[in-house]
Design a protein around this nucleic acid. Structure first.
Lengths: 339, 339
DNA sequence: ACTTGTCACGCAACCGGTTGCACGTCAAGC
DNA sequence: GCTTGACGTGCAACCGGTTGCGTGACAAGT
């Protein structure tokens, strides 16, 4: 009637096995408390009847549901799925189920979801949260929570340091002989964008490169494509783009103008989101989003176990992945930087 | 202690409002049964205390959890995220939460997840299930279930008919003057692959095109790239690939050999997974996966409401999206098909 | 033989809601 | 004035497990 999978309860099993309900319960949760024969008898009966413990009832009395929530800004952004999958895997390894929430980049929606999940999850991991620090803190007081790509003091968090990879990218370009490069920036409000831009400028300064910034404002193919005019106007010989999508746009714009990559111009992306699956394969910065997912989940699980919030701050460094859109400027041209 | 958001229960509210627990319960679930003033008083007390109903307890007594599960083969496959997001949105619109399951294309894993979710969801949508018909049927007997891209008689299902779009693609190529094309096939076990291949052959026959099949075996960039030698050997002038990833590989392989696209060769993908975000933008077939997600969810919700399984079979037709990897063969060459 | 301790198990309360039924009140109908 | 019915509310059982505590059986210790 109710669509329940089976109407079977511990009582049925208890009757069949000739024991009390509590013994059935213990057979499943703490078999060591029972004699081996009793456990065996109960298990046999359970299997014979096709009994399966009711998750909800168990959750009600224990307060443990075995669920966690994962909340992301946008499932369809290719950056997140690998992270989701990794988190999922880790959760399942520990016999947890995961609720997935999609906020559409909207803080209100994020709060709403948090509320809806509350009471059926034991913990939450918030990815690239758009909430204010204060809001995040207020949620933390209610239930275990870990952050990904959001740096709030006192709250367990795992951060993907794209700065390290971007730095390598700039060093790579310098080593190849480029003297002037441009950073194609992303959304100004983005934590990642700030991080990446700063890294580019720091390393460029250290290695004596000139760097100009061209704003793509939003992170998209079109934004990258539209920025090409301004990029070329700088007379730079290489560009580091905020992300792969932007980089791909830049490649398109370059192609439109007949600029060959990497022969005439080098491009590096960030996040390794398209993998090698475009042509030419993009030199980019690894994202380690999978590890972020795994680590965040383990962190959360540890908290659930120990019941203590640790001020963990797990930083994942990224690295340059050299493919085919970068090449030595001198090697390609056999001469020095144009005047 | 237990990390519950609040220790508040209906009893607290009842006491504060000076009514019985049952009245508090009714104030939230069937306010029409109470006098307006009582409802008001209870609500005030609840708000003042910060009471929020316990989802788990409610689920235990009603059998309704307000959760559904969405199980996909691989979150990271770009085909699924838009579908997931759409389903999510639809679920939320109806105040449902969604569990996400990832099977890694493994039927065993799929069964396991189905089991783990059982008892905490009211219904399931299974996307591109790898289970056998019999297994699927056995699950259906246990709880409401709807299928996406899996055609099992008697079970509500929504099917994305990529055949229609592929047919358009072939017609498009014919119209452009191509006489001989190749179909770069995907996994032989794939329902979609069968569908697409059949469509290509049917339309080609009708329009008098010659079509050869080149197997890429798995759907991937590399597979596509490796197939190019064989594709070119057929002396065809255009290719329809199983999916966008494969198509992208084909483009890469073509570029490796100096074959210009679309000037010398036309390529069309399928699934519109990379959007326009590559260069040159790929002519492909739309996927309508978002609608599939939305429709599947509504179907499920209807079943939950009416408690009756309808043998719905919802087919979504796809269409050709013309971008820049196809062009008239004659237009490009100004002559007839080469000998 | 009698205390003491251990072990296996049952009893019953509890988790936090929902819901069938009974009860009391009050207005309308005769 | 008494029945009738509608209405608002409370009582208590129930959803399906978990768990603190008590009890009886049996072995070991003196």
């Amino acid at each position: 009637m109710t669509g329940r999978s089976t109407g079977l309860t511990i009582s049925d099993v208890a009757k069949a096995a000739g024991v009390a309900r509590s013994s059935v319960s213990r057979a499943f949760t703490r078999p060591d408390m029972l004699s081996p024969e009793t456990v065996q008898r109960i298990m046999d009966a359970a299997k014979r009847l096709g009994y399966v413990p009711n998750h909800t009832a168990r959750a009600l009395s224990t307060g443990r549901h075995g669920n966690v929530a994962l909340i992301v800004p946008d499932v369809a952004n290719p950056f997140f799925p690998p992270l989701i999958r990794a988190a999922q895997r880790e959760a399942e390894r520990r016999d947890f189920c995961v609720f997935l929430g999609n906020t559409d980049e909207d803080p209100k929606q994020e709060s709403k979801l948090l509320g809806r999940f509350a009471g059926q999850v034991e913990g939450v991991v918030l990815v690239s949260s758009r909430l204010s620090d204060a809001q995040i803190r207020s949620h933390v007081s209610q239930r275990p929570l870990v952050l990904i790509n959001r740096d709030v003091e006192g709250i367990p968090r795992v951060l993907i340091d794209s700065g390290s990879g971007v730095s390598e990218a700039v060093a790579h370009l310098a080593e190849l002989g480029h003297k002037k490069i441009v950073y194609v920036s992303g959304p100004v409000t983005s934590w990642s964008n700030k991080q990446r831009k700063a890294a580019v400028q720091a390393v460029a300064a250290r290695l004596g490169l000139t760097v100009e910034t061209v704003a793509a404002s939003v992170a998209s193919y079109d934004a990258g494509r539209n920025a090409v005019g301004r990029i070329l106007a700088t007379r730079a010989t290489a560009a580091v783009a905020f992300d792969d999508l932007t980089a791909q746009g830049v490649l398109a714009g370059l192609a439109d103008r007949g600029v060959a990559v990497p022969a005439d111009f080098s491009v590096v992306g960030c996040d390794d989101v398209l993998g090698a699956a475009t042509y030419p394969p993009l030199t980019t910065v690894s994202n380690r989003s999978e590890e972020a997912g795994t680590v965040a989940l383990s962190l959360l699980m540890d908290m659930l176990k120990s019941r203590v919030v640790q001020d963990a701050r797990h930083v994942l460094e990224t690295h340059l992945v050299v493919r085919n859109t970068t090449v030595g400027y001198k090697a390609a041209h056999g001469k020095a930087e144009p005047g």
